[in-house]
C-alpha cells in the first residue's frame, strides 16, 4: 500500500513568482516525515505539488519530477484526478462538506467517484471511522450533519474521509493548528497508528509535535521575503533536533532565528 516518494529538481511557481526552488528529497514509505520552517518558506506549496493540488491555484505551475514508486506524477499522460486518489490530503482547517451527514462525508470520496453497494459503503465507512479513532464518538449520529461535530472530531472526520479512498500517501498541512491540545493529542496518536499503513507527510509549526510524531524531519527556509523557499536539510528527526548538520537548522530549532 504505502509508496515511496522521490522528488528531484522541483520548482513551483505562482504565475511568474518562483515559490520553491530546486527541491530534491526522498520520503520513505510507512514513515512520518515532518516539514518545518518559517511561514512563507513554501511548505504548503511543496506539499501541494505532491498530489498535483498546486495547479488548482490559478497560475500554479510546476516543473521537475515527483516519483511515486515507479511513476512520475508530472509525466506525460498522467491524470491529476487519479494522482489525488493515490495521494490524499488533510487541510489546516477542518472542512467537512456542510450539506452532508457524518456518514456521507466519509463515503464522499467513494460515492463521488462511482457507484458502490450500500453494504460495501457501510463497511468502508465503519473501517475508516475506526481508523480515524472516531467511530465510538459518532456511531450513534452517523446521519447528523458532519459540521455539527467539535473541531477535533471534524478534523478526524476529514482524516477518515481521506483514508476511505485507500490512498498510498497521506499529506497533512498543519492538521492540528486549529485544534485544542486534547484534540491535537488524539490526532498525533492517530498519526502514529496510520503510519503502519500509509506514507505520511505532515507540515507543522510546532517543533515538539514534529519531534513527537515524525521519523524524519525536513527543514525549509528562505533567504528573504520574495525569494524562493529551499530545502535546507532532511534527516532523522532525532538528529535534526539534537545535532543538525546545518547551522540555520539549529538556529531555527533553538529559537535563535530571524
Amino acid at each position: 500500500m504505502a509508496k515511496r516518494i522521490d522528488v528531484s529538481g522541483l520548482n513551483a511557481y505562482y504565475g511568474s513568482f518562483l515559490a520553491i526552488e530546486d527541491i530534491s528529497m526522498t520520503v520513505e514509505p510507512r514513515s512520518v516525515t515532518a516539514f518545518i520552517g518559517p511561514s512563507g518558506c513554501g511548505k504548503s506549496t511543496f506539499l501541494r505539488t505532491l498530489n498535483r493540488m498546486h495547479e488548482v491555484t490559478p497560475g500554479g505551475r510546476v516543473d521537475g519530477k515527483v516519483m511515486l514508486d515507479e511513476e512520475n506524477l508530472y509525466g506525460p499522460g498522467i491524470d491529476p484526478v487519479a494522482v489525488r486518489r493515490e495521494v490524499g490530503m488533510v487541510f489546516q482547517r477542518p472542512n467537512p462538506f456542510p450539506t452532508m451527514s457524518v456518514y456521507d462525508n466519509v463515503a464522499a470520496g467513494l460515492r463521488l467517484n462511482g457507484k458502490y453497494k450500500k453494504s460495501e459503503l457501510d463497511d468502508v465507512v465503519e473501517k475508516s471511522l475506526r481508523g480515524a479513532n472516531l467511530w465510538n464518538e459518532v456511531k450513534d449520529r452517523l446521519n447528523k450533519p458532519g459540521s455539527g461535530l467539535s473541531g477535533g472530531q471534524q478534523q478526524r472526520l476529514c482524516i477518515a474521509r481521506a483514508i476511505a479512498v485507500e490512498p498510498n500517501v497521506l499529506l497533512m498541512d498543519e492538521p492540528c493548528s486549529a485544534l485544542d491540545p486534547i484534540s491535537t493529542l488524539a490526532i498525533e496518536d492517530l498519526i502514529g497508528e496510520l503510519k503502519e499503513r500509509f506514507t505520511i507527510v505532515i507540515v507543522t509549526h510546532n517543533m515538539q509535535q514534529a519531534a513527537r510524531v515524525s521519523d524524519r524531519t525536513a527543514f525549509f527556509n528562505l533567504a528573504a521575503v520574495g525569494q524562493p523557499g529551499k530545502l535546507i536539510e532532511l534527516d532523522d528527526t532525532e538528529r535534526i533536533f539534537s545535532n543538525p548538520s546545518v547551522q540555520a537548522t539549529e538556529d531555527y530549532i533553538s529559537g535563535r532565528f530571524g
Binding site: 493540488m53 487541510f91 462538506f97 456542510p98 464522499a108 470520496g109 463521488l112 467517484n113 474521509r161
Partner: peptide
Amino acid sequence: PNELREASLALGVPKWRTILKVVLPT
C-alpha cells in the same frame, strides 16, 4: 468556500463532479 472545492478535488473527484455534488448542493 474554496476549501470545500479543494477538499473534494483532493479526494480525487473530478472538477465537474465537485461542482455538481459539492458546490451546487452547498
